[in-house]
Design a protein around this nucleic acid. Structure first.
Lengths: 307, 307
DNA sequence: CAAACAATATAACTTGATGTTATGAAAATT
DNA sequence: AATTTTCATAACATCAAGTTATATTGTTTG
């Protein structure tokens, strides 16, 4: 109040700056003077002149006002989801292959939001969610088997493809027979992962039951490296392949695999209120994925399901 | 409040630290949470765990609390007269010769009090006081002619002596006749000063009417210098000579001069309330002078008025 | 210097945050 | 399961601080 009066050069204008009425400020001043037992503005001077004590107090007041304002903006940022923390987790391949790219643009849009990322498969994710260690999970889920007590929001239809390096012999042929595929070694996802099951199932669906696994257990980065330096094949979600379309590190073979009955989606604990930053990230992902889904559809029709 | 709760590790103890009741703090917290639309402490956890937002707000709160405390101590220092400003003025010889020494000890006792010192003679001092440019004047005043509208507090009886360097011929004689004095040149105080009148009057009182002025118009420091390098004499308040007794720069001749009908005293505007720092200085000077007066009396009886 | 103007102080009233004590509810501990 | 500790709620009192209307005071001006 004191600094407002001093800076604006009058009691009335100071009051206006504070969004208060003039009498209110006048009385507050009088009360403070009484409490201090000292004048804050010199008596009987009409361009109000602050006393020594008033200057000193006003200085501290400015500090208070600044901190108060900082607190308010902090609270607003937080409430708006523009600041804070979101603890997310998901299956490694999706996180590395799809989410990480979106994270980059989220971070540049909301630099004050801290993202804590961890990895896990469905059972562990559910556990972490209900314990409260994470806020949001991104995970493929069987549509008819959403875990109880958790909310699920599907964001992408699950569609797997056979992936290989762009330099792979099959990738360069315009057409090939399914039997040709069997000749190449396979990179298998980690044994416990749903993708591993997908791999078996997918190959079975196109008649391949006996396949040679040349590499297993690595994360996406390893898979990319191995694939680039060999003629290996693997099964990956098409979204992961799609996200790499600019880098030309990986490509999809035009083979129609059977769809697993799963959808990529967001999971969270229905009982826990989502913090604003989490909500913001949630919304962001949804938007990104609705956009992505459409682009995937188009490109997928061209490249993979063209026959 | 938030930082108190966090630091003391509990709502109840936090309340105690704030000198408030536990329910009061509890409710304030609840209201703030409602206003923010966000929790400040995690739900249903008994060692209360602050949320992210709470930590952020508590940080700003600490800033506010510190500034608030700083303001309080500043106000207390000010009210106690231990901080602030005192604008004082007085006749040059007294200020330089007597007050300056006391100022030193006042400053070391109250380092946060700023002293603004100026010089002037009675009419100007009165003007400055009533205009409000100074808070306190230290000045010899005719006891029966205290200026109207001003308060006066006498602090030292006016007694002038003939002063000279310790090396002066007269100072080394155990006894001398008054006629001997006439032989030496005189240092005269500034023409307008009361001391100049005193000089004339004093010499007249001991029968000297015709005297030679060798130096005039200088401040006390000049007078000391001139006196040290010559056989000059001058008339000074005994208190000024006394204050130099440790430095042995100057000494008083054992000649009884007629007392001027003036007393050194403090002057201030009765209509203006004295600021605490001024009051403090006022009190300090009074104490110093009651002490000084006694010591002066003793030493004066020995050295000057011994016959 | 009185009149006019502008700025501040006061009066009277309302409101809401914050204080209290008493007591209920819920986590944590034994 | 019982006990203890800790926090939340209820009911009420108080006071700072908000309001509008109006008086007072300091400054400016004809």
């Amino acid at each position: 109040m004191l600094s407002a009066i001093i800076d604006s050069g009058g009691l009335g204008e100071g009051a206006a700056a504070l969004n208060k009425s003039q009498p209110s400020v006048s009385r507050s001043l009088a009360m403070l003077e009484k409490r201090l037992g000292a004048r804050l503005f010199e008596k009987g001077k009409r361009p109000l002149r602050p006393t020594e004590l008033c200057q000193t107090l006003a200085e501290q007041g400015r500090v208070v006002a600044n901190a108060s304002e900082a607190a308010q903006t902090a609270a607003e940022l937080y409430s708006g989801g523009k600041a804070g923390t979101a603890r997310i987790a998901g299956t490694p391949i999706f996180m590395d292959g799809v989410i990480s790219g979106m994270l980059a643009s989220f971070q540049s849009a909301f630099p004050d939001v801290t993202i804590h990322q961890t990895y896990g498969y469905l059972p562990e994710l559910c556990e972490q969610l209900s314990v409260g260690n994470i806020d949001l999970a991104i995970c493929p889920v069987k549509t008819n088997a959403v875990p109880p007590k958790l909310s699920f929001k599907p964001i992408l239809r699950g569609r797997n493809v056979i992936a290989c390096a762009p330099s792979h012999p099959l990738a360069r042929k315009s057409a090939f027979k399914l039997e040709d595929i069997a000749a190449y070694p396979w990179i298998a996802p980690p044994a416990g992962s749903p993708l591993y099951e997908d791999l078996r199932m997918a190959l079975q669906s196109i008649g391949i039951t006996d396949f040679r696994v040349s590499f297993t257990g690595g994360s996406l980065a390893s898979i990319f490296s191995v694939m680039a330096g060999s003629n290996s094949l693997t099964v990956l979600p098409y979204s992961v392949v799609f996200m790499q379309s600019t880098t030309k590190i990986i490509t999809a073979l035009p083979v129609k695999l059977e769809h697993p009955e799963r959808e990529l989606g967001l999971l969270w604990d229905a009982d826990r209120p989502l913090r604003p930053a989490v909500k913001r990230f949630h919304k962001f992902l949804e938007a990104e994925f609705t956009d992505l889904a459409q682009r995937i559809d188009e490109k997928g029709r061209q490249d993979v399901w063209r026959r």
